[in-house]
Design a protein around this nucleic acid. Structure first.
Lengths: 254, 254
DNA sequence: TCTCAAATTATTGCATGCATTTAGTGCACG
DNA sequence: CGTGCACTAAATGCATGCAATAATTTGAGA
């Protein structure tokens, strides 16, 4: 029987959740599995391109294939999973080019977030953001994994403050996928350079200069993407450079 | 047995498809049903808020509930369907406020599209856009339904020209949902005022002034949303104004 | 030994069936 | 006559089973 990178998937469990009550108990098992798979993918416990057999997932989560299948279908809509007819589901394996496309969309979305927020943050919200930024700073250099997670989460916090549900959903999606991409192509420590930039963004958002805030955010994301995606080419050895292409070829014949 | 607005759903069928071979035979039945439901929702053959019982859909399409269920789940991710635990699926019934949120996101996305395209269109692409615009003009005032469809399609054509898959997916989604919203809240003829604006956008994209093109696009979308969503308040009678609120209340208790 | 083909195994695609939950109906009681 | 409760009916949530498709192995022939 297949095992979906078994030790990683069920060996450590979700990191931050000590209480089950924290998340409002996923309505259905499908959603629970969907959420779990999403986390596993984002945290790279499921390698990009890895097979995701329905029965293995069902076994792992103690449900039937039906649930696994449905969760995979929905994740496919989100872009984290690729569904090949009669072949099965695979963890999305974005190429460098797809990665750039995703970052392009992300920059646009986050400009919208920034524009909506500039000058409209309540003092409470500013305080919350600064507190979050402090957490980022604390984790920076100490816990690499946590640092990366927080860096992404910061952008989610901003998006949530807009109250725009669709915007929240899209930003959540692109941040997820960017995490995956950064993990695939980013060089180590490429993610936590953003702490100071985040702080500056908070300040400008508070001041209310929308144009400057948007430029700042755009520059921030461009530099994150640049550090991760462009420099990756000269940074890594040839195997990494060829990996995505090799993957494309492989999937064509498998 | 329930019937999912039966006559509309199966009484007329998809409009343009005279041959089944035109679309390369949807990979799976799930996708086929998903696509069909999406069309039915966008074209308002399924009223906003309408129940979508699994077995009725299965019967209608000649498949089992499993397929219907899966399709509904995926449409829920797209935002066209709302899933209520233990209650079933419903056609999304966006409030006016949600409508504005969606238009906000759309404006951001289409600015990205415009920015990517400005000055980078090939002569062939420009020709294709002008031809499309001509079709729009021909339909304008003649065929209301077709006119609305083309107005939305124009933006999809633009998005596809970026070649950015994620951007295409998001624009497709927001255009779908905006169609639904315009159909719900827009006053008649509010959609086909855009023919000239589309033509102007094409010209500026060709010239290559990215900033101006983006402003133009933004203004275009703002005016479409404004015509439809803001004026709706003073235009219609009180029942329409209260409808979304009533819907919210209703769904809370049903 | 290599190649190609047939059979075997594994996995997806889909339908059906059962348990659980919700909505609706009717009857008893106040 | 109105209210509340039990009962019935219906729809969802989920698991299982079977057929079809793809991957793998085996074996025969060159």
């Amino acid at each position: 029987m297949r095992s979906v990178n078994d030790p990683a998937a069920k060996g450590k469990g979700p990191p931050g959740d000590t209480e089950a009550a924290m998340k409002p108990a996923p309505a259905s098992r499908t959603e629970a599995v969907q959420e779990a798979l999403r986390q596993a993918i984002i945290e790279q416990n499921l390698r990009a391109g890895a097979r995701l057999p329905e029965d293995a997932i069902g076994d792992t989560f103690g449900t039937s294939r039906t649930i696994a299948r449905e969760a995979l279908g929905r994740l496919a809509v989100e872009g984290l999973v690729e569904l090949k007819p009669n072949k099965g589901a695979f963890v999305a394996n974005p190429t460098l080019e797809e990665g750039r496309d995703i970052f392009t969309v992300r920059r646009g979305l986050e400009q919208t977030v920034t524009g909506l927020l500039a000058g409209r943050l309540t003092p409470d919200q500013v305080a919350e953001l600064r507190a979050f930024n402090a957490k980022e700073r604390a984790a920076s250099g100490v816990n690499e994994r946590e640092s990366i997670r927080l860096a992404g989460e910061f952008h989610l916090v901003l998006a949530r403050m807009t109250g725009n549900q669709l915007l929240i959903r899209y930003v959540t999606e692109v941040v997820s996928r960017c995490s995956l991409i950064l993990a695939m192509y980013g060089r180590p420590h490429s993610a936590d350079c953003g702490v100071d930039e985040h702080a500056e963004i908070i300040s400008v958002l508070e001041e209310g200069d929308a144009t400057r805030a948007m430029h700042l955010m755009d520059h921030h994301l461009e530099s994150v993407a640049g550090r991760a995606l462009l420099e990756a080419r000269s940074q890594h050895d040839i195997r990494d450079l060829l990996a995505p292409y090799a993957a494309k070829v492989r999937e064509q014949f498998e």
